[in-house]
Every structure is written in C-alpha cells, then in structure tokens.
C-alpha cells in the first residue's frame, strides 16, 4: 500500500512534532510513508472564510499532488473532513468536469490518523506507553463532519499506563472555529475559557485531540493562565513508549 502523509500547513509550521510522530508511529508499525513535497494546504481556511477562489486553487494543487496514492493519512480530522466533504462541492460549483473526476478519485482515499489505524490497519493497540492522566477533546469536525466516532478514544484506552479522565461537556465546541477565533475573539475566548475550566477540573496533565487547531486555541489559553496542563496531539501520545 502506497501511503502519503498530508501533514497540513498548520502542523507543518506550528506543530511539526505531530508530523514526526506520525512518521515514527507508522514506521514502528512497519509502514513507510511518503511526503510529496508539492503539498501545501487543503483550502479549509479560505473556504470557511468565504474566499472560494483561493480555496479552489488549493484544491486543484491537493488533488494533483496526492493523485496515485492508495491512501493519504493526515493528523487532522478537520482537514480530512474538508477534503472528503467539501472538495467535491467546490469543484462541482466551479463546473470543472476533469477536476471533479480527479477529486472523486483522490478525496475518498484521505484518512484521518485514527481511521487509518483502526479501519485500514485493524489496530487499536499500537504498542504505546504514556503513564499520565489524559483528557480527550473529541473536536466538532471529528464527530459531526468526519464521523470518526470513538476511534481515537479506543486507541487511547489501549495505551499502556494512560488514564483517560472524564471531561464534562466534551462534545461542546472549544471556540476555535478558524477565523471565528479572531473575528469574534470575545465569544471564542469565552467558549475556550469554559472548556479550559472543565479540563483543569478533570485532573488531566495532558489534553489531547485529533486536531492541533483546537489545541492551539486551548493551549494558548492554558499557557496564558500558566496552567499545569500540556496539549499534545493524539499522534504524539500514540508514538510514545
């Protein structure tokens, strides 16, 4: 199986250790990934903010760069959802028949990390060890757009030494929301502050999720408050031993 890694622009610049963790984890499981150097962004930022023309050209690049792989793994539920649910819609709107066919080939092969591990590789125990209390933030796009359900949770539960703490109101949005975080900064911070309060009350030492975008927002709030809670992507925990 030829697997490509789509690291996402966000992780590339802000959380490169997440991409490295995916590579480490998959190598440990006996799978080599390729990193097509032409990749940049799935277009979600521009699409959600209303800049459809720019989003479309990023979709074009994505589809060209990832053509020919059996699977494309990405450590972002939000970006995976963008590709799988919105790329087809964007190109249909643009009326580009050839591109639509290409998107139809590539988009369905994109897998969020936990989908690749659980569905394609049939694993829940990836041989990780992480002896810390962990709170899991499911993220809106994981559960509502991508529908990955409890896959990340099952992976975390199988990690040696890890205690998964209960997080009340886990399904509620953390308030990041892309440009929402700055266009409606007051509301965004109010939502995040409530989430962070729940995390701190949970007794977790680490907050994890399948998206670093939520983690940047919540981590930024935790850092500002000098709270003793670290944010780590799911891949980093699964790569630990």
């Amino acid at each position: 199986m030829r697997v490509a890694l789509f690291v996402t622009c966000f992780n590339d610049l802000l959380f490169p250790e997440v991409g490295r963790a995916v590579v480490t984890l998959l190598r440990r499981l006996g799978h080599e990934v390729d990193f097509p150097a032409g990749q940049t962004c799935c277009g979600q930022l521009h699409f959600n903010a209303g800049y459809r023309d720019q989003a479309l050209s990023l979709v074009r690049r994505f589809t060209r760069v990832f053509a020919g792989f059996d699977a494309v793994v990405t450590p972002s539920a939000s970006c995976a959802a963008m590709v799988r649910t919105h790329h087809a819609l964007l190109v249909r709107e643009a009326g580009d028949g050839a591109l639509e066919a290409a998107v139809g080939e590539v988009a369905p092969r994109v897998r969020e990390l936990s989908e690749l591990l659980v569905d394609d590789l049939g694993l829940t125990d990836v041989g990780a060890r992480f002896p810390h209390p962990v709170a899991f933030h499911p993220t809106c796009h994981s559960i509502r757009l991508l529908g990955i359900g409890d896959r990340p949770r099952r992976l975390l539960e199988a990690v040696d030494g890890l205690t998964l703490v209960d997080l009340p109101g886990a399904d509620e949005c953390c308030g990041f929301g892309g440009t929402f975080a700055v266009k409606n900064a007051g509301t965004s911070v109010a939502m995040g502050t409530d989430k962070v309060a729940a995390v701190r009350a949970s007794g977790a030492a680490v907050l994890t999720s399948a998206d670093t975008s939520c983690l940047m927002h919540l981590g930024g709030l935790l850092s500002r408050a000098h709270a003793p809670v670290r944010v780590m992507h799911l891949a980093e925990i699964l790569a630990s031993r």
């Binding site: 809106c140 399904d171 509620e172 990041f176 892309g178 929402f180 409606n184 509301t187 965004s188």
Partner: peptide, 8 residues
C-alpha cells in the same frame, strides 16, 4: 460569521 461552524 457569528459561528464557529461546530455543526451542533
């Protein structure tokens, strides 16, 4: 823009 697009 008054939404985080959480989908609830």
């Amino acid at each position: 823009y008054a939404s985080s697009l959480c989908g609830a």
